[in-house]
Nucleic acid binder design. Structure first.
Length: 553
RNA sequence: UGGGGUGUAGCCAAGUGGUAAGGCACGGGACUUUGACUCCCGCACUCGUAGGUUCAAAUCCUGCCACCCCAGCCA
């Protein structure tokens, strides 16, 4: 784990499980409770990291639970996607996979218990009336049904469950404090009527529990000791505790809140992301421009890089916006030490080695990763005609340019030292071919007379090169913080956030690259094999570029 | 205006009465079979702010300021 693996949550938990603490001698148990109404994004990965890592830290367990108490917004499609993304990220919930809906029967009984104790009642205020009677900062809320006898509420609640009433006709409300400064305590609704088929329970229920009532019960049913959630639930904690205190649940979990993640240039709102998908601004939840886990996966992000990103960002209660550059740093670091390096020429120009025999092919052993000799080498073919990067040649070298220009020597990575002898241009003055001679004694790239070669460039054999399209992905958004701006964020989608470059040349070894396999390309950054087009041999690669280098204005 | 939170560098973040860790970004240098990577060096006399307590305060006390969350039958 990271160098500084401590945070305020750990401090609370340590205290809780030590002598005299509320969970003395107990095993720490956490849970990750997504609502299956969208795909997981990098922000959820922070919660995943916190939930799973915290459990692990204390030798405990973390459950995966679908928080599916509102069938209106949820769908089975998301359940599978969420599980897949969590597995990909590398977290394991073992056999502890649950649905909040598993506990609907218990929740119903706890609601009955509250009513029986006079701590809840059936309220017939409409949504609008309830809003009107909610009160304000200086006036308490009201409800004419608050003192309804328990027997009557119990009867109505049963009839609600039997489907006797239409949607919205009545609710069950916890009887707490209509004058509380905390609006969540002003007799919050705990059950509502919704005649809708649920993706797990079908038509078994037409009343569904509200989050504030359901969540503490879900946690308690699973023996969760620490219910970690984001800051916006801080003012719900008194209600969480009230439910735990007044229902005869099997354990008393403690809720601890942490700040959620913000990343600049990045929208992390499920609602907005869904909007992008549904309106066709992107190709889907896994469009590589999306901050979803599946999008990042296609973009070439490795699970380790995302985990490390959150690990190093730390956990606090400060609403913070992390630089996107930090995420990129975490990826580069991982790729640099773990990904195979390959050669690709994005903007090719032909290099002809005039003194190299025609029709002859040679092969060079190139290390896959200089930092990891155990990753061995691959063979790269070489011949008289090669492709090199357009900007590795200059007709008139500028100051401090030490790559290829007439008269200059340069090393072809792992191959030979060559000397530029000339070039040809077309009618438009564009360089079409660069000519050079090679030093036959420099096989492998080392000179025999000890002369120093200042620059090394990458290349691809023209005879075996694979043609490719490179997709350049920039940020989807141009404003620094579209997520924070209360404006029409769709207006801020950068029209150039996707740019396709054709005619790139790749090393032949990439012909068999697997989708979503990540490579590091010498000098060019990092790539991910995204998909292989049906047209034979055409690979499509994503190239992630850092924002400052991107082509955006 | 009620309740709940948070303020340490451009961005994260440690720090819990003993004289401001670390990372990103940035600037400089060394090295290099890629100008990448790696490695060095630099980057807060001061912790939102004003006072107070103390030999000593980012840490304790008081006032003020700024920002975030809460009045869904969403989660």
């Amino acid at each position: 784990m990271s160098e500084n693996d401590s945070n305020f949550i750990f401090d609370f938990i340590s205290e809780d499980i030590s002598e005299g603490g509320r969970f003395e001698g107990m095993t720490v148990h956490t849970r990750f409770p997504p609502e299956p109404n969208g795909y997981l994004h990098i922000g959820h990965a922070k919660a995943l990291y916190i939930d799973f890592h915290t459990a692990e830290k204390f030798g405990g367990l973390c459950n995966l639970r679908m928080d599916d108490t509102n069938p209106t917004k949820e769908d089975e499609e998301y359940v599978d996607a969420i599980k897949e993304d969590i597995k990909w990220l590398g977290y394991d919930w073992g056999d502890r996979f649950y649905y909040a809906s598993d506990y609907f029967p218990e929740m119903y009984r706890f609601a009955e218990e509250l009513i029986t104790k006079g701590l809840a009642y059936v309220c017939e205020l409409t949504a609008d009336q309830m809003k009107e009677m909610r009160g304000d900062l200086s006036n308490p809320a009201r409800s004419p049904f608050r003192d309804r006898p328990a027997k009557e509420s119990l009867d109505l609640f049963r009839r609600m469950k039997e489907g006797e009433f239409e949607d919205g006709r009545m609710t069950v409300r916890a009887r707490i404090d209509l004058a509380s400064g905390n609006f969540n305590m002003r007799d919050p609704a705990i059950y509502r009527i919704n005649h809708m088929s649920h993706h797990q329970t079908g038509d078994a229920w037409c009343i569904y529990p509200m989050y504030d009532f359901a969540h503490p019960i879900e946690d308690a049913m699973e023996g969760i000791t620490h219910s970690l959630c984001s800051l916006e639930f801080e003012s719900h904690r008194p209600l969480y505790d009230w439910i735990i205190e007044n229902c005869s649940v099997p354990c008393k979990p403690r809720q601890i809140e942490f700040a959620r993640l913000g990343i600049n240039h990045t929208v992390l709102s499920k609602r907005k992301l869904r909007n992008l998908v549904e309106n066709g601004f992107v190709s889907g939840w896994d469009d590589p421009r999306m901050p979803t886990l599946c999008g990042l996966r296609r973009r070439g992000y490795t699970p380790a890089s995302i985990r490390v990103f959150h690990e190093r960002n730390g956990v606090s209660k400060v609403n913070s916006i992390v630089d996107y550059a930090f995420l990129e740093h975490c990826l580069r670091e991982d790729l640099n030490s773990n990904a195979h390096r390959v050669m690709a020429v994005i903007s090719p120009v032909k290099l002809i080695i005039d003194n190299y025999p025609e029709g002859v092919s040679d092969e060079f052993e190139v290390e896959n990763n200089p930092e990891k000799p155990e990753d061995l080498t691959r063979k790269v073919s070489f011949s008289k005609e090669l492709w090199i990067e357009n900007d590795d040649f200059m007709e008139e070298p500028s100051r401090k340019y030490f790559r290829l220009f007439p008269g200059n020597e340069v090393r072809l990575k792992s191959a030979y030292v060559i000397k530029c002898t000339g070039f040809t241009k077309d009618a438009d003055g564009k360089v079409t071919e660069v000519h050079a001679t090679y030093d036959p004694d420099s096989r492998g790239g080392n000179t025999t007379d000890g002369r120093k070669i200042k620059a090394t460039i990458h290349w691809v054999d023209a005879r075996t090169a694979v043609d490719a399209q490179i997709r350049l992905y920039g940020s989807l958004f141009d404003t620094p913080e579209p997520d924070l701006a209360d404006c029409n964020y769709l207006e801020h989608i950068s029209p150039d956030s996707l740019n396709v470059i054709s005619g790139a040349k790749l090393e032949a070894s990439l012909a068999s690259a697997q989708p979503a396999e990540s490579f590091q390309f010498l000098r060019l950054g990092y790539f991910c094999a995204d998909s292989i087009e049906s047209a034979a041999g055409r690979l499509v690669f994503n190239r992630s570029v850092s924002l400052k280098d991107s082509f955006r204005v």
